[in-house]
Amino acid sequence: MPAIDLNSDLGESYGAWTLGDDVAMLKLVTSANVACGFHAGDPATLWACCSAASELTVRIGAQVGYHDLAGFGRRFIDVAPRDLTADVVYQIGALDGLAQVSGSAVAYVKPHGALYNAIVHHREQARAVVAAVTAYDDTLPVLGLPGSVFLEEAEKAGLRTVIEAFADRAYTPDGTLVPRTTDGAVLRDPAVVAERVRRLVVDHTLEAVDGTVLAVTAESVCVHGDTPAAVEMATAIRSLLDAEGVTVEPFV
Score class of each variant (00 low, 15 high):
3 A>S: 15
4 I>E: 04
6 L>D: 06
10 L>N: 01
10 L>R: 01
15 G>R: 06
17 W>S: 09
17 W>M: 11
18 T>V: 15
24 A>T: 11
24 A>R: 13
31 S>C: 06
35 A>D: 00
43 P>Y: 08
46 L>R: 00
47 W>T: 13
50 C>P: 05
52 A>H: 08
52 A>R: 08
60 I>C: 02
60 I>S: 02
63 Q>D: 03
63 Q>M: 05
65 G>N: 02
70 A>M: 13
71 G>L: 10
72 F>H: 14
73 G>C: 09
74 R>D: 11
80 A>G: 04
86 A>L: 12
94 A>Y: 05
102 S>M: 06
113 G>I: 07
114 A>N: 08
117 N>E: 11
119 I>R: 00
121 H>N: 15
121 H>V: 15
124 E>S: 12
125 Q>V: 07
128 A>L: 08
129 V>Q: 01
131 A>M: 11
133 V>Y: 03
138 D>S: 14
139 T>A: 09
142 V>S: 06
143 L>D: 04
152 E>K: 14
154 A>T: 03
156 K>E: 11
157 A>I: 07
161 T>E: 11
165 A>D: 02
165 A>N: 07
169 R>D: 10
172 T>E: 15
174 D>A: 07
175 G>W: 04
179 P>C: 07
181 T>V: 14
181 T>M: 12
194 A>T: 03
196 R>L: 13
199 R>D: 14
200 L>P: 01
204 H>L: 07
205 T>P: 02
207 E>V: 09
209 V>L: 07
210 D>I: 03
210 D>A: 05
212 T>L: 05
216 V>K: 00
217 T>K: 13
220 S>H: 04
221 V>M: 06
229 A>R: 09
237 I>K: 02
239 S>V: 09
240 L>H: 03
243 A>M: 10
248 V>F: 03
